[in-house]
Design a protein around this nucleic acid. Sequence first.
DNA 1: ACTCTGACCAGCC
DNA 2: GGGCTGGCCAGAG
Length: 118
Amino acid sequence: MPAKPKETPAGRNRRLVLAAVKALAPGEVAGYGEVARRAGLPGRARLVARILSAGDEPGLPWHRVLRSDGRIAFPPGSPGFDEQVQRLRAEGVRVEAGRVRGQRAAATLDQMLWAPPD
DNA sequence: ACTCTGACCAGCC
DNA sequence: GGGCTGGCCAGAG
């Protein structure tokens, strides 16, 4: 076989992030930081945001990724905002005023850090 | 190489 | 709950 496509660091990170997002089950939501952490890239929340904004990878459940406070990342009223809300509701996620109420939406930091394992 | 800009986050006040 | 600050780092100009 010809030359192997030598994966760049950026390409590797992208692959890890995409995998972490794909791992989210329908109805499950996670914050950008949480996704980054699961991808083995703690502190790289912004990288996750950038990768999602690229919009590649068809079928990627990008709508399951929220800000750490449970809010939609898009400005309220924007096309992306509306679409994300619709997709989430279609999966049974409760969304009110741009805020996700699903149990696992990382309610508050306190709960996130001290929440008992279910 | 340098500056700006982000679908972000956590710590503090 | 709200506002500011510093940290993160990859593209674009």
